[in-house]
Amino acid sequence: MGRVEDMQDPLIAAEVWLAEGRAVALATVVETWGSAPRPVGSHLVIDSEGNFFGSVSGGCVEGAVIEEASEVIASGQPRLLEFGVADETAWRVGLSCGGRIRVQLERIGE
């Protein structure tokens, strides 16, 4: 079981990054259907340079989330993203057996 105190925790990492003056977005798995590699509640944090920490799928879906993150950081508007069987990247990451995930992506702001 992960300890909150270490840096092995995306939410702690997000705070450390903010303290360093970096702009940060937070992605969270909010729903899964079928077999999904990461459980609901999993976090990924992304900064405006595209650095990231954590995981929402364990693979290629991260790339798409990171791309969207720069826009969310710029606009401050949250987004709900869905990846499913019809999605090519999701297919490759192993969500092919009927799996779908929904990810919320939001900026950490003042």
Binding site: V4, L11, A14, E15, L18, L26, E106, I108, G109, E110
Partner: peptide, 15 residues
Amino acid sequence: MRRDLLHALNRARVN
């Protein structure tokens, strides 16, 4: 999420 919410969330978790 507001930064102060994140801070309070982490604080609760660490505690």
